[in-house]
Amino acid sequence: MIRLARLAAYTLIPFELALVTIVLAGVRVPLPVILAAELLALAVVLFEAAVLTGLYRAARRRGAARRAALSEAVRQAVPAKVRLLIAHELKCLTSLGYWIARRKHGIGPGRRGFGYFRGQSTTLMMWLFAMTLEGFAFYLIIPWPVLHKIMLILHVYSIVLVLGVIAAGHVRTHVVGAGVLRIRYSAAFDLSVPLGLVVSARIGAKIHDGGLIRLADDRLDVIVSSQTNVTVHLSEPVTVVRPLGRTGTASVIRLYADDPREFVRALSIPEPAARHGGKEVTP
């Protein structure tokens, strides 16, 4: 039963990862695809809950404390990558609270936040509006009352989740201050770099052909709307944890900021002068 539960949980990874990636990339997804993915997720969650209940009770019978029994049951039944996806959804949902309260996550004394979601937010809100209308139309077309209720629950949750992704993009900004450069992308990625490792930072727009988080050849790309516009060089590589837990290292980081000049200025690293015709020109 445990093996079956883990296998069922693994089926969530491609669906949920694809859904989050597509949403963050601003690609329009047909509502039936979203509802099918969430229906599969609901079925897996219910099955996992039944298995977890049995494992929890067995651990309690062996004398384990409640928290220890629950942790043991989760470790046995839920793969680490699925736990990361669940944590991502929880971060999206909590980001809604920050957004409603008009607060930024991780911003405190001596820390400045720098947005990166300005150009993407409008596209996602338009997509969310179309998704809401499409769900209402499906609700009117389908005649079965039981299916109405299931669709309503899944549709509302899908809307809330997409809102959470948008909210996370606004409240989980890049952060500079208190000796740390924190690079983020919605609730999917979060990297803290000691400011003492930053040796240079320069502005330079680059168009990418896809992807969100890329890590290769000692370089990390955190791409927003197929763009990066700031390149940060470090004195030594830092460990990067990708959204599904895989790790690597990078000493060059390309990212996107809504206000790249102010972002570079906040790093207290002067931008290198541009060269034209053999002469240096300070921008």
Rank of each mutant, 00 (worst) to 15 (best):
Ala50Pro: 00
Ala58Cys: 05
Ser121Leu: 09
Ala130Trp: 11
Pro243Cys: 09
Glu271Ser: 11
Ala37Ile: 09
Ile166Gly: 01
Pro109Thr: 04
Asp258Ile: 04
Pro143Arg: 10
Gln227Met: 15
Ala257Asn: 03
Ala64Thr: 01
Glu271Asn: 05
Val171Met: 08
Leu128Tyr: 00
Ser251Arg: 15
Asp221Trp: 12
Ser225Trp: 14
Met126Phe: 05
Tyr185Met: 11
Gly277Ala: 12
Leu212Phe: 07
Lys149Val: 15
Gly278Gln: 08
Arg214Asn: 03
Gln76Met: 08
Phe47Ile: 10
Asp190Gly: 06
Ile269Tyr: 05
Gly135Glu: 01
Thr122Cys: 02
Ala168Leu: 08
Ile183Leu: 14
Ile269Val: 12
Ala68Ile: 09
Val44Asp: 03
His105Gly: 02
Thr53Arg: 15
Pro79Leu: 06
Leu31Asn: 05
Glu280Trp: 05
Val176Ile: 14
Thr132Glu: 09
Leu133Ala: 11
Pro243Tyr: 06
Met151Ile: 13
Gln120Leu: 09
Arg214Val: 08
Leu140Trp: 15
Val175Lys: 06
Leu220Arg: 10
Ala205Met: 14
Ala69Glu: 06
His276Arg: 12
Gln227Asp: 00
Met151Arg: 07
Ile22Gly: 02
Thr132Gly: 04
Ala167Thr: 03
Ser95Met: 05
Thr231Tyr: 08
Leu85Asp: 00
Leu154Tyr: 08
Glu271Pro: 04
Leu96Lys: 00
Tyr139Arg: 05
Gln120Trp: 13
Val20Thr: 11
Leu35Arg: 05
Val162Gly: 00
Gln76Gly: 00
Ile34Arg: 09
Leu19Phe: 15
Arg83Tyr: 02
Val224Ala: 10
Ile100Val: 13
Pro270Lys: 12
Leu234Val: 13
Lys104Cys: 02
Pro30Tyr: 14
Arg214Lys: 15
His174Leu: 14
His170Val: 11
Ala25Met: 12
Ile13Val: 15
Arg6Ser: 03
Thr53Lys: 11
Met126Thr: 06
Leu19His: 10
Phe15Leu: 13
Ala8Ile: 10
Leu140Asp: 03
Phe117Thr: 01
Leu90Gln: 03
Glu236Trp: 04
Ala87Pro: 02
Phe136Cys: 06
Ala178Asp: 10
Met125Lys: 11
Leu161Thr: 00
Ile34Tyr: 06
Ala250Gly: 06
Leu215Tyr: 13
Gly245Asn: 10
Leu124Gln: 05
Val78Met: 07
Gly54Cys: 07
Arg66Pro: 00
Leu17His: 04
Glu262Phe: 03
Trp127Met: 03
Leu40Glu: 04
Arg60Lys: 14
Leu40Thr: 09
Ala49Asp: 06
Ala205Gly: 04
Val238Gln: 07
Val232Cys: 03
Ala168Trp: 04
Ile34Lys: 14
His148Arg: 13
Ala25Val: 04
Ser268Pro: 00
Leu154Cys: 01
Ala49Ile: 07
Ile203Lys: 11
Asp217Tyr: 03
Leu220Lys: 08
Leu128Trp: 02
Leu234Phe: 13
Val146Ile: 14
Ala77Glu: 01
Leu154Asp: 00
Leu128Arg: 04
Ala43Asn: 07
Pro109Ala: 15
Glu16Arg: 04
Pro143Lys: 10
Val238Ile: 13
Leu147Asp: 00
Ser192Pro: 01
Ser121Thr: 08
Gly210Glu: 08
Arg111Val: 13
Phe117Ser: 01
Leu195Ser: 01
Leu17Ala: 07
Ala87Met: 12
Leu7Gly: 05
Tyr185Gly: 01
Leu70Tyr: 10
His276Met: 15
Phe263Tyr: 04
Tyr139Thr: 01
Trp127Phe: 02
Leu4Lys: 09
Leu93Cys: 05
